[in-house]
Design a binder for these strands. Structure first.
Lengths: 227, 227
DNA sequence: GAAAGACGGTAACAATGTTACCCATCAGAA
DNA sequence: TTCTGATGGGTAACATTGTTACCGTCTTTC
């Protein structure tokens, strides 16, 4: 593949320059938001000319896609490290909470990935594939609950879809400032339990929680598994 | 207020010019999307200089806010015209469907309102108030269900919040292209019923629906009220 | 009638993504 | 070995964006 030592070195050099550019872009995105991501600014941070970004990424869209992929990699890393649990439903709940926590911890990445923060950028096939792979983590979590018999009533993809819709909406509105953090968290928990409740194999838990909101009775150890 | 005939005429003239500018901006937004909304383009369409837009709207942000308000006015109009129904739950469901239908019928307005399609624009206090007023329609619909006794278990604002989160997430993902229209609609219906089910006073309807997905039995006239 | 202020058109400015031009450097052929 | 072709990268330009300085024209006011 690498014809000569020179080509090899050049390729490696491009690799490290590309990494440096991406690192600068990531830092700018995290510290100053998408607005700071200009070609000149990034080139200035890394100490090269703007041309380099065009040869390495093919323009701002290429760099946007690289950041999109980086965001999904971070997202996936966060979701994967949710610890396993014999209680599949508890693990799914932990994953749902991890979804929000990631989005709130790196909202600018979330904006890039899901809110079109880079104007004019549309993800290509590879990027959509990465998104789909991340989403499959959710489908798998639901499927395990179906197999374990704690969820029922719909296909894993269906339940995962509605969960994703709900979580994305909650997180998206919260990032956009429609909810402050203190009221957003209980709303998010209520949303997650609400969406899952119709699919619970034994609906007593959710029923108990709902009733408890009115009667304040019958708390049991099952409560701690609620969300 | 209007000192002289000249001032009066000038004021009225500004009013019609402002309306014309807004009309051009609305047409551009609807036909070519937010990307076509440049100050020069709008000025060219209406046949004036860019300066006019600055004196009438105070810059692009002012025009963005005007479009935001226009979007919420259209949204509210659509939601208000959901016909009343003695079955409060059916009316609420109709409202939830109207939410999606509006968003899909004017996705660029929805992007302006909820997805930050105008870069750098943050809604001011008046704009947020308009948003809140529109959202109150949903709260009121939920409150009527609570008063009628068909929903229970949480405050109207809580249920409305989770409904809003869910609907916004579904619509937002659909607009962004994560679902095609044919698969999005049943998902949306499933999402709406799922979110509402835990709050149903009599949960037999939802239970029956869920069970029916597995057994394909026991259809009743209650089915037509599902979503 | 003259000074003052407001509206609006022209042309500029700053910032952005992008590219034409040019030079340096290296691989490969004569 | 030397020349040719090509590739990468820096400089400076171009087009487009939001925005504003400048100036002429008009009305109001003293």
């Amino acid at each position: 593949m690498a014809g000569s030592a020179y080509q090899q070195a050049q390729r490696e050099g491009q690799g490290v320059v590309r990494a440096a550019v991406l690192e600068a872009a990531k830092r700018l995105l995290a510290t100053e938001g998408p607005g700071a991501l200009t070609v000149r600014r990034i080139a200035g941070e890394v100490g090269c000319s703007t041309k380099v970004i065009y040869t390495l990424f093919g323009g701002k869209d290429g760099l946007s896609e690289a950041l999109w992929l980086e965001g999904f990699a971070r997202f996936e890393r966060r979701l994967v490290e949710v610890p396993p649990d014999d209680d599949k439903l508890a693990r799914l709940h932990a994953g749902l909470l991890a979804y929000r926590e990631y989005a709130l911890s790196e909202p600018d990445y979330y904006r890039v990935m899901f809110q079109g923060a880079m104007p004019g950028f549309r993800p290509g096939p590879e990027a959509l594939l990465a998104a789909k792979r991340t989403f499959d983590l959710l489908v798998r979590g639901v499927a395990e609950c179906l197999e374990a018999g704690v969820l029922r009533g719909a296909e894993a993809a269906e339940i995962a879809d509605v969960l994703w819709m709900a979580m994305h909406g909650a997180v998206s509105l919260e990032i956009s400032g429609y909810f402050d953090r203190v009221e957003a968290e209980p709303r998010y928990r209520l949303l997650c339990t609400s969406v899952l409740t119709p699919f619970l194999a034994s609906r007593q838990m959710a029923s108990r929680q709902m009733d408890a909101r009115e009667t304040d009775t019958r708390e049991t150890d099952a409560d701690e598994r609620e969300v």
